[in-house]
């Protein structure tokens, strides 16, 4: 059974912070059947092998701890805040 039921999808949607409507849950659940049935092509037995997770051959991405730099656009980053309180980003409270 490749379909993801609505109950599971609701749980998943909470994990990824998507407030889905009942209609959306239903639709995505139906989609999941079609899509995951298609995806099940990959359900084979693979010979255990060293998985290379990266396409790049680069290793040890290290950077010297040099002099600190000031990013000149820091102000423009703060200006992007949808809600702001003086020099702070303003978000809902949690206490």
């Amino acid at each position: 059974m490749n379909k993801i039921d609505e109950k599971t999808l609701k749980r998943v949607s909470e994990v990824c912070r998507l407030k889905l409507s009942q209609g959306e849950l239903k639709e995505f659940s139906l989609d999941s059947e079609k899509l995951f049935t298609f995806f099940s092509k990959i359900n084979q037995d693979y010979a255990p092998k060293d998985l290379s997770l990266y396409l790049t051959l680069n290793r040890n991405p290290l950077r010297k701890d040099g002099t600190a730099k000031t990013f000149e656009g820091a102000k423009s980053i703060l200006d992007l805040a949808p809600k702001r309180s003086a020099d702070y980003f303003k978000v809902p409270k949690n206490l």
Binding site: G66, A68, K69, T70, F71, G73, A74, I77, L78, D87, Y88, F89
Partner: peptide, 18 residues
């Protein structure tokens, strides 16, 4: 990233970058 780490002396949201 190359931002400064002296956050104690700094005004909020000044030691930041993309």
């Amino acid at each position: 990233c190359e931002c400064n780490t002296n956050f104690l002396d700094a005004k909020p949201n000044t030691l930041i970058c993309p």
